[in-house]
Amino acid sequence: MIDRPLDLDAVRAFILIVELGSFTLAAEATETTQAAVSLKLKRLEERLDCRLVERTPRHVQLSAQGAAFLEHARELLKVHDRAFSVFTEQQERLVIGISDHVAGPELPALIARMNQQDRQLLIEVRIGSSSDLLRSFDRRELDAVIARFDAGRDDGKIIATEKFGWFAAEGWQHRTGDPLPVATMPEPCGVRRLAEKYLDEAGIPWTEVFVGGGVMAVSAAVMAKLGVAALARRMLPLGANDVGIRLGLPELPSLPILLHTRVRDGRSHTALSELSVAFKGAVRD
Results as ranks from 00 to 15, higher is better:
Arg51Gly: 13
Ala144Thr: 00
Cys50Leu: 03
Leu236Pro: 03
Arg264Asn: 10
Ala151Trp: 04
Ala229Ser: 12
Val243Gln: 09
Leu41Lys: 01
Gln173Trp: 06
Ala278Trp: 09
Ala160Glu: 00
Phe84Pro: 03
Ser38Ala: 13
Leu62Trp: 09
Ala26Gln: 02
Gly227Ile: 00
Ala73Cys: 04
Thr33Leu: 01
Ala112Thr: 13
Glu106Pro: 05
Ile15Met: 02
Val86Phe: 13
Gln34Ser: 14
Lys163Glu: 15
Val215Asp: 04
Ile96Tyr: 05
Arg192Glu: 13
Gly239Glu: 13
Ala144Phe: 03
Thr184Tyr: 11
Lys280Gln: 15
Ser22Asp: 03
Arg264Val: 10
Ile17Lys: 08
Gly128Leu: 01
Arg93Cys: 12
Leu180Gly: 10
Ile123Cys: 00
Glu208Met: 08
Arg262Ala: 09
Ile245Leu: 14
Leu48Ala: 08
Ile204Tyr: 03
Ser254Asp: 13
Ile98His: 04
Arg119Gly: 12
Glu54Gly: 14
Glu170Asp: 13
Arg262Asp: 06
Ile159Tyr: 02
Ser219Lys: 12
Leu8Gln: 10
Leu180Asp: 10
His101Lys: 14
Asp178Glu: 14
Arg139Gln: 10
Phe87Asp: 09
Phe14His: 08
Leu231His: 08
Leu41Phe: 04
Tyr198Gln: 15
Ser85Phe: 09
Arg47Met: 10
Ala217Trp: 03
Phe167Thr: 01
Asp178Leu: 06
Phe279Arg: 09
Ala202Gln: 05
Lys280Pro: 07
Ala26Val: 01
Glu28His: 15
Val211Thr: 15
Pro253Cys: 02
Leu8Val: 06
Ser38Leu: 09
Arg246Asp: 15
Val86Arg: 14
Ile2His: 14
Glu106Val: 11
Pro5Arg: 06
Trp166Gly: 01
Ala112Phe: 12
Ala183Ile: 07
Gly97Arg: 04
Ile123Ser: 00
Arg126Ser: 08
Thr33Arg: 02
Gly248Asn: 03
Val218Gln: 05
Leu77Gln: 07
Arg192Thr: 10
Leu231Arg: 12
Gly128Pro: 01
Arg47Asp: 12
Lys42Trp: 08
Met1Gly: 15
Ala240Gly: 04
Trp206Asp: 07
Asp143Ser: 01
Asp265Pro: 05
Gly165Cys: 02
Arg55Trp: 08
Ala10Val: 02
Leu272Val: 02
Thr184Asp: 11
Ser99Met: 09
Glu75Ser: 14
Phe69Arg: 07
Ala73Lys: 02
Ala36Gly: 05
Glu28Thr: 07
Arg264Thr: 11
Val283Tyr: 08
Gln61Cys: 08
Leu41Thr: 03
